[in-house]
């Protein structure tokens, strides 16, 4: 009889899992910036189309030197924090009541669904009329923009809380308030926190739009001015600041998620 063939079982279980490659992201970023700089120095990219990264850096440095960056950042962050916080608090409250009370659901859920997809930028002129050209309309725009996604995330989260846990709470005679605070809210949190990520991104978009109308200070105003003067280096510098704000916000929410959802590992 012939010799039996011996070979290892072929491995075919690879792929389809995310591996952590921490250095790749920064490397790609550095590579793109380097290529961009080389392109500008060699004249492949004309200065009018795109300023060199070094020029953008110089624009940023000027901002810091004159101290103007603090005026712009201060104004923007204040609007962002006030608008986003108010929108989030109201959004969680309304989302909770939609999740908890049939009457609120029947009355409010359709309205939320109808207004959610409207770009709030379209309502900006209306807000200017209602709340004035000053801080009011800007904060209101951000508030409105963050309110709706938060409502939707919150009541979606409440709907997804395990019913047997609520039953359990009732079977041990917990008060209504205890069930909401100790079972429903923590159970909805894994859905609410990702909602914060989305609402924060929306808030930054709306911030810039709102600051393009009648603002003296603010990143949006700075970008608008740079654009109208064709100062592309300053324009890109402003965009870089916005993206840095976005990164910091994302990082903060990530921290909050890790602290509040530690039980999920």
């Amino acid at each position: 009889m012939a010799e039996k063939q011996v070979q290892p079982v072929p491995f075919r279980g690879g792929g389809f899992t995310a591996r952590k490659l921490g250095l790749v992201g920064p490397l790609v970023f550095v590579a793109i910036v380097a290529l961009w700089e080389i392109g500008c120095r060699t004249g492949v990219i004309p200065p009018l189309v795109l300023p060199a990264p070094s020029e953008v850096y110089a624009a940023l440095a000027r901002l810091v030197e004159t101290g103007l960056i603090w005026d712009h950042l201060g104004a923007s962050l204040q609007r962002l924090v006030v608008g986003w916080s108010l929108g989030t608090v109201l959004g969680v409250a309304v989302g909770l009541s939609i999740g908890l009370f049939s009457l609120a659901r029947a009355g409010l859920a359709p309205i939320v669904a109808a207004i959610f997809p409207v770009p709030k930028i379209a309502l900006l002129p209306l807000f200017v009329i209602w709340f004035g050209i000053g801080e009011g309309s800007k904060v209101a725009t951000i508030l409105f923009g963050t309110f709706f996604p938060t409502v939707v995330a919150t009541y979606g989260g409440v709907d997804n809380v395990d019913r047997t846990l609520i039953r359990m709470g009732q079977s041990f005679g917990l008060s209504w308030f205890s069930i909401v605070r100790k079972i429903i809210l923590p159970g909805a949190l894994p859905a609410i926190l990702p909602g914060f990520r989305i609402s924060a991104a929306i808030a930054i978009v709306l911030l810039v739009a709102a600051e393009m109308i009648g603002a003296e200070y603010g990143i949006g105003a700075y970008i608008l001015l740079a654009g109208s003067l064709m100062a592309t280096d300053e324009l890109i510098a402003g965009v870089a600041i916005l993206s840095a704000i976005g990164l910091v916000v994302n990082w903060l929410i990530g921290r909050a998620e890790r602290a509040l959802l530690a039980w999920r590992r």
């Binding site: 047997t164 846990l165 039953r167 359990m168 079977s171 005679g173 917990l174 205890s178 100790k182 159970g187």
Partner: peptide
């Protein structure tokens, strides 16, 4: 007796965000 009729569920119904101790305290807190 704090809760005369008390359930034990098939799927345990423990709050995943509370420790063992926290899950027991839950039914005493009120």
């Amino acid at each position: 007796s704090l809760n005369p009729l008390t359930f034990i569920f098939q799927d345990f119904a423990l709050l995943p965000w509370r420790s063992v101790e926290g899950n027991i305290r839950l039914v005493l807190e009120d």
